[in-house]
Design a protein around this nucleic acid. Structure first.
Lengths: 197, 197
DNA sequence: ACCTGAACACCGTTCAAGT
DNA sequence: ACCTGAACACCGTTCAAGT
């Protein structure tokens, strides 16, 4: 039995890299990181087990790419939620937190990967680049300062603290430590803390 | 070549479970979770590769036990730091945050494991039990309320938010998103947020 | 009760060779 | 440039058998 019943399958896949990444995202979401194997992805893409090597040097490179795509999508979703929330600072803050938590709930294993410490390399080694997400959160902090709901001064520590809070809240939820019923009040309290008049 | 040059090695190990757990903790700390293998641990404990099965049904059970021990140790260290900090609420809060971050820095892979979503089981499935840590943080919140530095009312959402903040701050640091120089001001800001007069 | 040794089905990674 | 097929060294897990 060949790998494919279709005898016309071309030698070249076409866009193997994108196919592998898409399938990897789904597997990560549905079955967790332990179920993610290069050989299995190759099987699903109907190529030999060594073919992915052209596109991802090793498993680590695949995880890096997944985290990178994750940060891009998280930034997109938070950005869109803020834009949809109108001009009020507190509404935007609540929208950002809600979008963040929603992403975490849908893609918990991906979020673990994005914020997890890398195993092998130098102390600062990371998966993916969260710069854009950080910029978006920084804009929110500046707006809060202009609205007089955050203390003035260097926005940097507040920005870090807000990212940390979003991430911490999301983690409490995805790790199962906080039940669904507690999500709303938890976000409300977080917003209150970052919007004291 | 036998597994052991010592011909007097007894058939029974004595306390294989504890030996495996100790070695697993060290491996997790030094080489990350990917380097953690039951076969390797068995080799280091000088038993056959199937011997660990008596003590840990599978790899997941080992990870569960590691997370459990991690939560116990984290609670111990935070508790001790708070007790050493005297009676002032802000000093205790700062001590708790510092101890938490220190734990995270020393055992980043373990913390990822403790707060990571489990891959295989039901939605609420978790590694380890953080109840004692939560109780300690809850006591801190109640003290803050009594000191008039936290809003009165149900301490539960504030407790969750404080745990989330501690965890989020620690994660920003262990994931390499925040450099060592930013740790102090980040903790200071977090304390300020949870101690507004 | 606790451990051994062989076996099975899976990996990631490498590399010469094919198209 | 991209992919195949065989090979190697590793896993987790199972199970009959030993002490």
């Amino acid at each position: 039995m060949t790998r494919n019943a279709d005898a016309d399958r071309p030698y070249h896949h076409g866009d193997l890299r994108a196919a592998l990444l898409g399938e990897a995202e789904r597997t990560l979401r549905d079955r967790g990181i332990d179920a993610l194997s290069l050989r299995d992805l190759a099987r699903q893409a109907d190529v030999s087990h060594a073919a992915p090597r052209r596109h991802f040097a090793d498993r680590q490179a695949l995880l890096d790419a997944l985290a990178e795509a994750g940060f891009t999508r998280l930034a997109d979703e938070v950005r869109a939620a803020i834009d949809d929330a109108g001009q009020d600072y507190q509404a935007r803050l609540r929208a950002a937190a809600t979008a963040y938590v929603r992403f975490a709930t849908r893609d918990r294993a991906l979020l673990d990967l994005m914020f997890g410490a890398k195993n092998d390399e130098s102390p600062g080694a990371r998966y993916g680049t969260p710069e854009r997400l950080f910029t978006i959160v920084g804009d929110l902090v500046r707006q809060g300062q202009q609205a007089g709901q955050l203390p003035p001064g260097d926005p940097e520590p507040l920005r870090l603290l807000l990212v940390a809070t979003l991430q911490g809240v999301a983690m409490l939820i995805t790790s199962g430590l906080v039940g669904a019923s507690q999500i709303e009040p938890l976000i409300a309290d977080a917003v209150a803390v970052f919007a004291r008049v």
